[in-house]
Amino acid sequence: MSYSDGKGGNTLEIFSFAFMQRAFLAVIMVGLLCSALSFFVVLNKLSFMGAGLSHAILGGIAIGVLAGINPLYSGAVFAVAIALLIGYLSKHGKIQEDTLIGVFYSSGMALGIMLISFKQGYYPELFSFLFGNVLAVSIQDLQFLAVVMFFVLLYIVIFFKELFTISFDEELARAAGLPATTLYLGLLVCLALTIVVSVKVVGVVLASALLVIPAAAGYRLSGNYRLMLLFSLLTGLVAGLAGLFISYYLNIPSGAAIVLCASAIFFLSFLSRK
């Protein structure tokens, strides 16, 4: 969504509106959260998982819309359930992970479209969920975002070395007695929750981009994981803030602006000599 009159104005004027202050807070938190998680998404080759979950949660959001509860809460429950189902079934050799993602990707979205069609009349918020509307972020959304951010980052910080070892050599991790499947399922839950809280900023269609591009740029810029993580966080943060400014002053949708800024950083990273 766009929100300026297209006439520019004082640079600091953007900070004078309460909704813009909330938007900045949301962008900073989502930028950092997605970037931290994108580190493991890229290392574990989970980009299709990110895309699949982000589209599938439309079903959960639609359930919330119809039931009259906060769609983010229903979306969160729905996304976590799907993530655990995909993770459990694939880890127990029932069916390939990418096949399962392909199934849930489309069926979750189809469920969302069908349920929303039951809603009488025009439902403008549907576009917010599909493409994001950072202007519409409420205090309640920020609180939910902060709680998710706290628990996801806590999980990553506590189990970083285990998750990193599993990402590099799962067989070795299992041989050392690590609960690799449980830790992996925990990572998928973090991924599902992060996608849900990103929906307000970039929408279900573009949420997966923030879970791949920051770490992909970080990977290009460094041969060591510590710097990769740092560059990933910086990319998420810079892309989020720059996207929000550009969106405000050029009157273009914020989600698209943020993702395009992240993409620009990714392509610029090819200029570096790794």
């Binding site: 285990e162 590099f168 799962e170 007695g177």
Partner: peptide, 28 residues
């Protein structure tokens, strides 16, 4: 079983040998 492009140093690889169930959640 490993990705040759994984971004880590030689010492990082060796450190992984110290990651066990006994040290779960604790820094090395």
């Amino acid at each position: 079983t490993f990705d040759r492009r994984f971004p880590l140093s030689t010492l990082d690889v060796v450190n992984m040998g110290l990651v066990t169930a006994g040290s779960l959640g604790c820094p090395l």
